[in-house]
Design a protein around this nucleic acid. Sequence first.
DNA 1: GCCGTTTTCGGCCCGACTGTTTTCAGTCG
Length: 573
Amino acid sequence: MRNHEVAWVFQRIADLLEIKGAPSYKVRAYRRAAHSILALPRPVEDYHAEGRLTEIPGVGKALAGKIDEILASGTCRLLKELEEEVPPGLLEMLEVPGVGAKTAALVYRQLGITDLDGLERAARDHRLRTLPGMGGKKESNILHGIALVRRRPDRLPLGVARSLAESIREALVRSGLAERVEIAGSLRRWRETVGDIDLVAASPHPEQLVEVFTALPICEEVIEKGPTRARIRCRPVGQVDLRVVSGDEFPCALLYLTGSKEHNLRLRSLAQRKGLKLNEYGLFRGGERLAIACEADVYEALGLQWIPPELREDAGEIEAALRGELPRLIELDDIKGDLHVHTTWTDGTADILEMAGAAAELGYSYLAICDHSKSLTVAVGLDEKRLLEQKAAVERYRKRSTEPYLLAGVEVDILADGTLDLEESVLAGLDVVCASVHRAFRQSREDMTARLLRALRSPVVRVLGHPTGRLLGTRESCDIDLEAVMEAAAAEGKILEVNASPERLDLNDAGIRMAKAKGCLLAINTDAHGPAGLRDMRYGVGIARRAGVTPDMVINTWPLDRLLAYLRSAANT
DNA sequence: GCCGTTTTCGGCCCGACTGTTTTCAGTCG
Ligand SMILES: Nc1nc2c(ncn2[C@H]2C[C@H](O)[C@@H](COP(=O)(O)OP(=O)(O)OP(=O)(O)O)O2)c(=O)[nH]1
Ligand SMILES: [Mg+2]
Ligand SMILES: [Mg+2]
Ligand SMILES: [Zn+2]
């Protein structure tokens, strides 16, 4: 799959063209094509082979030719020419907040500066302020910006961003100045990482609310502040945008700030074509403001079904909504149980009884106890004897209490050679066996793929736990031929886990999309190590929704009898 | 450079904030 490669070339061409001063529509054409290619459900090579490149939105004859060139040679002539003309070092300057294509071009043409270091020296030496439209403030802002870029402020993981966003939301609500405050942006779209936190508020006193916002104790720096919008940097991490509008304007402001940018663009051009104007204040025909009470009213006026935020990426959802063919996405309420939790038998913080109680509070009808196996010594994993004891304990609980139904399971380690950490004869007696990799992550693609395939071939294994092994921001995904693993899983009726723990989110949205295309079944599990962890389910559901997952594909939306029947029958084949 | 349920040519989303400027360009959301 070379979609990233092709998109990267187009993105780079767009940036270089922009610095060169090419017409903005041309620049946008390359950006649009790059986005479309990233959003493709299949490899761009397939479209190429089928002669269907121009079916990709934003790809016409010229860009199809360039894709052909890139696939053949890894690059294209236009890119090479641009790199001769425009020093590629200028591109790193675009990372600096407040520095765009015009500034990069200016410092290059007038001062001969070709990279970030050169820009920094020029700012230090006060040479920037000699340029037209530049002054002392911009000079120091650029120095500040360069220092920030050098610190490499990463995108925040979803879980960290959620709790930060909630706490700021609470503070704004407590001020009493806001009628409503909602989380928008990529966080509302449940992206696994977010560049910033976007909040939108309805208030009769926008300026006062902005004051409260910028005076929050968590605020380290006010980046920008106006009458309706402010942006702050938080300690220790994170940037937060707040947009304030009136109550009437709120639905359109929420729609605007939820994005994505590309989705907004599509909505606004649809509106245009209908003789309407859509902005963050409302939907207008001529000077007249149409009555809009909620987001759905806007979509309806544009001839669309309401589109769930998780799908708003301009990745085909507009076309589906036009045809009225949006999927009925899975919801938290569809989840009937959790099939992967730990207890004090290994490294959990709560015993079986407490976890069952917590599951009951969530209204679950089943819960699978899946503790670690013996080779995971840091977690005091269970050996065969202890596992049998735990199974007996689970069965004792089941006699006493009917809801939730407890499944006796295990999260058995997949050893380096793909064999399992526990005797198959013992595993065979369990209700559900989840197999996961916890060590030897750095194997070659070949070895790792063979390892997972071997584990999946074991008749006792039902679920592949956190399939790629990635930890958000900490550990890269293992090198795996996921397609091969998924094909095997689909063929043998094995289930792929969507691990909902916010540090994992594994499979992620792209992985789930692939699994869906291969026809795999999924289980969305929290991997909870205590009662609070069970609430992470929402993260997994959010990621699954981004991939367009419907309830039937997820086995823990099934009623207990169907689930047990499936686990038993599959185990016997 | 792409594209069309008004168009195969003439459009291409729309607005806030900052710094620099006496009226707006650049950048960003
Ligand atoms: N109409 C329009 N809306 C935009 C544009 N840029 C951004 N927005 C809207 C949609 C975005 O989701 C929203 C918030 O902007 P952000 O830069 O924070 O992006 P977003 O939250 O989607 O992703 P992030 O994870 O923060 O990088 O503002 C634009 O150029 N036009
Ligand atoms: Mg954002
Ligand atoms: Mg933002
Ligand atoms: Zn695990």
